[in-house]
């Protein structure tokens, strides 16, 4: 109960982020997000399987133009996200503190998340040159292998509420994939705040979709969904993996395990994370042999 002279604080409802919009869950279900002391700080949507389905449809719809967007433009968009997080840094830090982090830990986490975005922003137009090959085949053919995004990727965000999320999201979208993020069950607020940043940056709708809800309820629907190409599971604890792998079998989804707990480590950031979510495509084309030895002309 507040004193009458104090201003009434406005409790925020954290909505879902699907297809570039902030709908409430179609199920109409909410849970209270509590701070470290057990006080209610906000209402969170409890996403349903239908919300998942909508998010996957949105991600699939956005894939074509996102994956074919100029790589340096993808980089600029990631950089723009970093700029906006930086400009709202205090809000992110405060929110992390609400979720139980110390001021210094929250600051470190936010700074690292911004740097992570910038790191991957820079990779967007470079990883292709690192991982592609021109293959010297014996026949008269030009043969090259390039990376292509796997497609729609489901990210099960790790407990590190902002940095962990950014560390899985950035390499995913830097590589031209679109994402459906299931925010960490325990600490979801930063994910939705990040969605608000994404919304006001230049990320096209549907490229990143963020859901809050119950893992136990939503995982089977997400992992068995036949129109999802890959799942990233980023908890160090591998307990969920067997069930994920089994459920992913229906369409042979790629299941990636990025088992980390300390997302602050520098080696967490790597172009190999981008590669993990790429398919390698090899193209052959004949080479005409005119002039020179061995030519029929």
């Amino acid at each position: 109960m507040k004193k009458s002279t104090q201003r009434l604080s406005v409790l925020k409802t954290y909505k879902l982020y699907i297809g570039g919009q902030f709908p409430r869950t179609e199920s109409g279900r909410y849970v209270a997000a509590l701070d470290a002391n057990g006080n209610k700080i906000a209402n969170l949507c409890l996403a349903s399987r239908k919300d998942c389905r909508e998010a996957i449809v949105a991600a699939r719809g956005a894939l074509g133009s996102w994956s074919q967007r100029a790589a340096n433009n993808r980089g600029q968009i990631l950089y723009r996200i970093a700029e906006l997080v930086e400009s709202r840094k205090e809000a992110f830090i405060a929110e992390l503190q609400q979720q139980g982090l110390s001021r210094s830990a929250a600051t470190r986490e936010t700074n690292a998340a911004i740097d992570c975005l910038i790191y991957y922003a820079g990779w967007c137009d470079k990883y292709q040159a690192i991982f592609s090959t021109v293959n010297p085949v014996a026949s008269s053919h030009y043969n090259f292998s390039v990376c292509e995004p796997m497609g729609v990727v489901t990210l099960l965000a790790p407990a590190s509420p902002l940095l962990g999320l950014v560390s899985v999201l950035a390499p995913c979208v830097a590589g031209g994939n679109t994402a459906v993020v299931l925010a960490n069950e325990k600490r979801s607020l930063s994910a939705i705040s990040l969605a608000e940043v994404l919304h006001s940056s230049d990320v096209p709708g549907g490229v990143v979709n963020i859901l809050t809800g119950s893992y136990a309820e939503l995982l089977p629907w997400i992992v068995e969904h036949r129109d999802v190409n890959a799942v990233v599971y980023a908890e160090k604890d591998a307990a969920q993996l067997p069930s994920l792998r089994t459920k992913a079998t229906g369409n042979l989804k790629r299941v990636l395990h990025w088992p980390l707990d300390d997302w602050q480590q520098a080696e967490v950031q790597s172009p190999y994370r981008i590669l993990d979510l790429q398919e390698i495509k090899t193209t052959w084309h004949p080479i005409q042999q005119i002039a020179g030895s061995g030519a029929s002309y």
């Binding site: 026949s139 008269s140 053919h141 004949p286 080479i287 005409q288 042999q289 005119i290 029929s296 002309y297």
Partner: peptide
Amino acid sequence: LLAGPAIDQTGVE
């Protein structure tokens, strides 16, 4: 009269 299919030399060989 000149219109004909393309010829791919490698395939011919």
